[in-house]
Write a protein that binds this DNA or RNA. Structure first.
Lengths: 333, 333
DNA sequence: ATGAAAGCGCTAACAT
DNA sequence: ATGTTAGCGCTTTCAT
């Protein structure tokens, strides 16, 4: 690879002058500038980022923490985050985490090893040690779609949104509603809480053992698993609330395969409104997360945080929206 | 951030000794080693990758080139690539490209600025200048799911696979078949070629203007667009071959909305077999790409290439599989 | 077994 | 306007 020294040597000037030209600084003779620019173009010279970052102590790169499963929801959210980050001049660097403590520790190590301007968490890590370490590194961090101790976060009110989703089912006349959720993430329990609260508001007693099933991941595959378990308990329900669209997709698959019609026999409501949900048959009724706005706010907030060094707007709660489509209707009979 | 000097100073030794301990080298007094290890743990010291890479002239990081749309197919493929790359000890670094020449040039610059051990292309760039530059950098590169001039590539035989998909339709009795494909990527035209060849083998004349529609991207949204255009031409067809599952998903949505039953009125076959295709209603008949094997081979080949400096196995063609599910049946009447 | 010195590619402060 | 020097954090000779 051609370096700044190579360029300097070839034009018979010092690396400083070349550096000045590369970085568009003033105080350099325009003839020399042209000469250098010409050689740069010819050789295809590009300054080495790592070396640059090292002396600048700045990288214009933000780390994005994601699950290794990298589900549709995360991918969609990420694409908005990335777009806005780019508009502020940042690059992104991915850090994948598995649902294991070892993996979380590894992630922290990788984060530390890199020269980052900031971190955006799209995947929830709950371990407070993680956040303590980040704080010690004095690295700005913003969490998207979940709450974190001591760092700014952007999200919808999960509990209220779940309440509204279930309330929609209740208003349609459903009384026997089941929920499939994933454990491990706090939104799973928050959404479950909204579910129970809505039930109770309608005079239905909270009975987790019968009403809910918790699975390990937010994927269609685990949605199938959860639905099968629910079916094993009894068939005495008319509606399913899935804590995630992907879970709903798996649940619908099982329902369909067992001969249930959706929504005539069983109504299904999801959560997130990932793109594919509008292509499904039937189209999925769900809670829409404001992806674009979450992405924009997250990027902006991190940007401010990086420049001011101050955590501003610690907790941003954005509005969600109930999108009624084809997977819900009044219960049978 | 705590540096190697800080550690050295605190234990009263030289950075060299600390470096030896960190890198598990021999020839260091075991008491001192323990002492250093202890301090490292206490301070949470992690060596700076960039500095390390610079002197080692090696980063154990491979760049992955992807589309900025980052569709389901790419995400799925990536997850396999990444898994195997990790098993060889590599990290991954994403580089997103748009379908514009400017973006391709930007991508090249970013690639050059980074210290990479190699590159894996999951998104096709056709511009030969790109590959010339990479060759000049002496950077190992492997392409997955498409062919590249002068670099090893792993893929299925697109044309044969498309032929088989269409042949399946033909054997079912379909004669009036339409294809939706995307332009810009060479697999689009290869798959179209397979489509035409199958048609011709069945004695049906090639008539691109009537039989095919090319859209800009491989997304469900563009699948809808393509299907609408096809419908505008005439309704005289009984089957659709979509060059991509995502395109098929969009096409099915439109078909359904216009009142066609799938597969009774119109059969649909896709290509790729992305995960979601098995959850669709109806389940999508499609060509399965061997994601796992493509991922494994790509990672292995790049690994070999990095270590030997030699391009081995220039063109690996992997077997595909026709997966017959619920979206195809004999034509009406 | 350990430290001193040099250097990876770059920029910035300081001279001139 | 330009070059020289130092140093970012690290590893690796080369001495000792």
């Amino acid at each position: 690879m051609v370096s700044i020294k190579d360029i300097a040597k070839q034009v018979g000037m010092s690396p400083s002058t070349v550096s000045r030209v590369v970085n568009g600084k003033k105080h350099v003779n325009s003839e020399k500038r042209e000469q250098i620019l010409k050689l740069i173009k010819e050789t295809g010279y590009v300054p080495n980022q790592a070396a640059r970052n090292m002396v600048l102590r700045r990288s214009f790169t933000v780390g994005i923490v994601l699950t290794d499963t990298f589900n549709i929801f995360q991918r969609q959210l990420f694409s908005f985050v990335e777009r806005h980050l780019n508009s502020f001049g940042y690059n992104t660097h991915f850090f994948f985490v598995k649902f294991e403590q070892v993996s979380e520790e590894e992630c922290l190590i990788k984060l530390k090893a890199e020269t980052l301007d900031g971190i955006i968490m799209i995947h929830e890590i709950r371990n407070p040690v993680f956040y303590d370490s980040v704080r010690k590194m004095e690295l700005p961090l913003v969490t998207a779609t979940f709450n974190s101790p001591d760092f700014p976060s952007i999200h919808v009110c999960e509990e209220d949104a779940a309440y509204d989703a279930v309330d929609h089912l209740l208003k349609l006349g459903h009384r026997k509603i089941r929920m499939i959720s994933s454990n491990g993430l706090s939104c799973g329990s928050q959404r479950a809480e909204g579910f129970f609260r809505a039930l109770e508001a309608a005079g239905i007693k909270r009975n987790p053992d019968e009403q809910t099933i918790f699975v390990r991941q937010d994927t269609a595959e685990f949605g199938m698993y959860g639905m099968r378990e629910l079916l094993l308990r009894n068939r005495d329900f008319s509606a399913i609330f899935a804590a995630t669209d992907e879970l709903a997709i798996g649940a619908m698959r099982v329902l369909k395969d067992k001969g249930f019609r959706i929504p005539e026999d069983v109504s299904v409501v999801g959560f997130d409104d990932i793109e594919i949900s509008d292509y499904f048959m039937p189209r999925l009724t769900t809670i829409r997360q404001p992806f674009s706005e979450i992405g924009e706010r997250t990027a902006l907030l991190l940007h401010k945080y990086i420049n001011s060094g101050e955590r501003v707007e610690m907790d941003t709660v954005l509005p969600y929206e109930l999108i009624i489509r084809e997977s819900t209707c009044a219960p049978p009979r």
